[in-house]
Design a protein around this nucleic acid. Sequence first.
DNA 1: GCTCTTTGGGTAAACGTTTACAATAGCTTT
DNA 2: AAAGCTATTGTAAACGTTTACCCAAAGAGC
Lengths: 333, 333
Amino acid sequence: MQATIKDIAKATGFSVATVSRVLSNKKGFFSEKTAAKVNQVAKELGYKKNMSATELVTKKSNVIAALINSTKTNFSDSIIKGIQDKADELGKTVIILYAGDRDARAQKKALTTALERSVAGILLLSVDLSPENLTLLKSARTPFYFISITFQDTALPCITSNDHGIGYLATSYLIRQGHRRIGLAGLDFSDSYTGKLRLAGYQAALAENQLSAHSEWVQAGDYSYEAGIAALDAYAQNSELPITAVIAGSDMVGIGILNRASALKIPVPQKLSIVTIDGTDLCRIVQPPLTSVTQDFYKMGYVGLERLLENAAGITYTQSELTERKSVLAVKK
Amino acid sequence: MQATIKDIAKATGFSVATVSRVLSNKKGFFSEKTAAKVNQVAKELGYKKNMSATELVTKKSNVIAALINSTKTNFSDSIIKGIQDKADELGKTVIILYAGDRDARAQKKALTTALERSVAGILLLSVDLSPENLTLLKSARTPFYFISITFQDTALPCITSNDHGIGYLATSYLIRQGHRRIGLAGLDFSDSYTGKLRLAGYQAALAENQLSAHSEWVQAGDYSYEAGIAALDAYAQNSELPITAVIAGSDMVGIGILNRASALKIPVPQKLSIVTIDGTDLCRIVQPPLTSVTQDFYKMGYVGLERLLENAAGITYTQSELTERKSVLAVKK
DNA sequence: GCTCTTTGGGTAAACGTTTACAATAGCTTT
DNA sequence: AAAGCTATTGTAAACGTTTACCCAAAGAGC
């Protein structure tokens, strides 16, 4: 028996209309005295607005759904923090929905949950929608915005890092430190567009310095810790490492490489320098702390929500920057 | 203009009642032919149920709200995974709400969001509600259940690890490994009951072995990385460490201790053994990997949801176990 | 004293579902 | 043939809000 505005109306002697007006603060439609009385009775009765009813009649809601990918939530935290902060400023409330991990069924469930509740908008944090789910999303009238994911289809509204720039930044930094044989590890070049762009950035930086990558320098992977392990094992097949530095596709890849290197007694950074892509807190807590191309995840969330609400189209980029820690050694020429 | 059941009714020639029955699959109230037709038209029109309307009339919902604490989400991930899996089995959907970090305002907002949407139940993942928010929660008729948090008030329904047991387990393990001077670091003994219980378990194990703790052995903190750093600095004030092993209040504390130790050239585990409490993936990725008392977070989520729905009262404990990695050295007597 | 605003508040419809209750048709029983 | 089922469908009320529209009283201006 939740108390309703009817109960308040009865108790105060006012009509439901008046009660509704003071409770939703429609200024200028009631007197102070009325408001005071209504509010007091509402409190006494433990009144709580029934959002279903409100949303049913107003046909709008101030909730934003954020769909997240169940894996790799280590940077989602920052994105969500950004979203949350912006939402607070705007008086929106955000609900987070798990969209599984490349699982079309789970994606669909999360998507319909959001759509059925007619949320004001949907944010998708690195969720790579299956084609039919993408169609579903597009056919709904709910605004949506992707965060931290890059598509071939540039028409999809999203905010993300410039992945070409990331590859370029990491590579040219290592070149400036004197490295010439530079690996690239743990990126996925097949279905993910992100991987291809970073690779292109890497190659561009190399080419600009009259270098070119040997094929064994680039080791594909799935951005995981295990991919890092596998990459280092591939590099370490011969007694001499073919590279002096490696760019890891993610922090976890970087840590995998680091740990495998230490298991194989390859000192980092003396024998192998590492630059990691992402720059989450994980970089700080390993030893040596990993130099990284740090993405501005917080900002992605913060301005992502902004963009969603202004119905922006196209791609927005956030700035990445190189954060020097202790995993890169400058080599003397 | 989302299509509604009215539109489908018009298009098919049936009444809204029939359409509703087909769409919500009230078996035995319609013929196959009818169902086929209705479903087809629904699909054509891109019909999506309006949950607000449904919830308004049925006064029930199958969504579970999970409130989480914005910090320390590193183990929340496992808990959420558990919740999610159970929810999938049960056909429930879960929405995650951020409840800030010991911020009564944010807590209240998350709480009212959940309450206003009349969710089927509320799960609170290590959120330490302020007194007034607790009252608010209790006064609502919505079932709730705490996960991974212990209260003095044993009437509060929750599932968590046995914190006394954790302290005892870690300590007695170290004693069995031959340690006699054992520290305890990074726990909060003031407002959090958890810290007190773990301390009691620690003391119990010590006492059982005719040992007792020197006051400088236990260093309070707030479960953070920085608390670990501070604890080690406290231990390392004299040239000789007062302890041979330390129990870290959380993985982050353990890593803080580890890194500070390595900065000070104190080899782990040769000069200092570390047992960490939590046992998340973080333990695996540092060097040496940290031996831990591993809590079963996944299970907390999984059975937490179960318990919530069966309206269980009182405390349920999940089992913790000691996971040996590489941060503890057995000392010869 | 009369009309015109302004202020405060009431009436009732609408939002999209679900479901109790009725109604019909076609059977089966007796 | 009357009565009773069963299967299928329809009618309409209900859920708790919001809000367009209406109304009355109180001043304001003449």
